[in-house]
Every structure is written in C-alpha cells, then in structure tokens.
Design a protein around this nucleic acid. Structure first.
Lengths: 140, 140
DNA sequence: CAACAGTTTAGAACTATTCCAAACTATTTT
DNA sequence: AAAATAGTTTGGAATAGTTCTAAACTGTTG
C-alpha cells in the first residue's frame, strides 16, 4: 500500500532523509499528507498553515517543500510559468491541467501510457517522463 | 512542407493574425524563423536582437512572443519554474529537457507515442498533450 | 548541560514578467 | 498627401514568485 503514511512514519521518513523533525516540518507534513493527493503551491501551503495557526515563514515553506522533494516525499510539477506545484503523490503518474482554473488532477499510471520512448542522447539517461494533458472548457 | 517560411510569407501570416508588420515584429520574426527549430526565452531573444543591432525593448519582445504564440507562429513550453521557452516548431511534437544545461530538444511526433489517453472530465476537451522527457547526465 | 550543527526567520534582494501612460507609426479616411 | 485613427512601442515602475542572508533559535550529541 503506497498510501500508508502515518505521523510517526513521517518522522522516520524525515530522519532517513537527514531532516530533523522540527515543529514546522511536522506541521507542514501534516497539512500536506493528512489529506489525499494534493497539488499545492508554496503560497497555498503557507496560507493553510497560517489558517491552521501554524506559525511558519514563507522561507521555511519553500525550504521545506524543496527538502521534502529531494527526499522523495513530494514531487514538483511545472505546468505554468512562474508557479510551481508540489504533488503529494510521488507514485508514477501524470496530470490533467485545467487551463481555466489552474487546477491539476492526477492521471493514474495505468490510464495513460507512453510508447516508443526514444533513446536519450549519449551520456544522458532519462530521469523522468512528464505528461501534461492540457484541458480547456468546451464553451469558453 | 511544414518548414517553408519565407519572409513575405511571414508578413502574410502576421496580417492573418491581425498583427501589423512593424519593424520590430519583422526583425524578431527573422531572428526566430531564419534558423531551424529554436527554443528561446524572452531574454535570449532580446539579447540576440541587441547583438543584431535591432533596437527593441524587453516589453516588446514579450508582447511579440505572446502575440506570435496566439497566432500560432510559436508555442510556449514550460519545463522550468520561472522561465518560459518559446518553440519555433509548432508541429505536433515533444521535448527532451536536459536538466544540467536547461536546454530543450525536439522529439518528433513519430518517435514518441502517447497511448490510452483518458477521457477528459465532463465539460472539457483536450487542448494539447505535452510530454517532457527529463534527462540528466550519467556521471553527475 | 555545553557545544555544535542544523533550522527558522524577517526582510532584503532577485528574476522573470507585466503594466503604464506617453510617444510613435502604420493604415485609413478625406 | 495631410489628417484622423487605431494599433504599437517604449522606458521605467510595478508585481509575483522565489531565493538569499545573517542573526536568533532549537534539536542532537557527547
């Protein structure tokens, strides 16, 4: 079960990544992982934190998002210039991107398949394949 | 032949898009389309223009890139937060993205195929499918 | 519990991009 | 071909998202 993420499990995961389980990191982790798959910007997470009476600075939100990403707890998704989304689902999957609202929605791995991947140029290897299905309203 | 793009053809294309063929737009169009497929940021194009003794403001470079994109002469590619690339190849195709250098390289349509596209959610239709194959150096 | 290394913070700094209102230019009208 | 007009360009200011910085703070280790 990839969806298993208990609170204490998180502490463990942070430790593995060499990150101390601080008040801020734990609070942000709860906000991020206590709900199902989410796609959040740094600003959105910061607002949520303030609303939940978690005092964190913007800088810390950014630091934390990047550290979590490095450790594999999050995945960064780029679909829009000038805004990064962080995806709490780190399984292999792709995205619908709703141009009208700016929302993202997961497309599970088995619902979309990339065939005939070309060889990467010499000296390089494929780190990841991102598919973004851009969707727009039918009556704009 | 999709690669056919003469200078006068450009004037025609601009007219179709309702864009006057001004000095700046024509100069930028030459820089963009007189070489083969390119992936440029606004800043890069602005530098090239200055080097080529084409006096244009940054604002105009941005305006022009967006107008060209709207008219279908360019395609915007987002792979990196905080930076937009404009692709002179508007045919159906995908990209390699070199994480070490930030470069983009086209993957022709026939070298990569997306199978089993899921249905877009009700009330929406697929505007475009972007595949980015992120590639990294083997010995980092 | 002292010492150290890692963390947080406010605010400044930075980068890419957009906005603005005035000056300018291509096109249309007369 | 001059005047009227509508679309363009421009420098600089403004904005948005993100990163940096140096000082204060906190978790961990010995």
């Amino acid at each position: 079960m990839t969806r298993e993420r208990s609170y204490s499990g998180l502490i463990a995961r942070l430790k593995v990544g060499g990150l101390r389980p601080t008040r801020q990191r734990l609070a942000l982790a709860r906000l991020l992982f206590e709900r199902e798959d989410r796609h959040l910007t740094a600003e959105q997470l910061h607002s949520e934190a303030l609303e939940a009476d978690v005092r964190v600075s913007v800088a810390t939100v950014y630091n934390t998002l990047h550290q979590f990403t490095k450790v594999g707890l999050l995945r960064e998704v780029v679909v829009e210039p000038g805004r990064s989304y962080f995806d709490t689902n780190v399984d292999d999957h792709h995205h619908f991107y709703f141009e009208s609202t700016g929302d993202l929605q997961d497309i599970p791995k088995d619902q979309l398949h990339v065939a005939e991947l070309p060889e990467p140029p010499g000296g390089t290897r494929i780190a990841r394949v991102d598919v973004v299905v851009r969707v727009q309203d039918i009556e704009p």
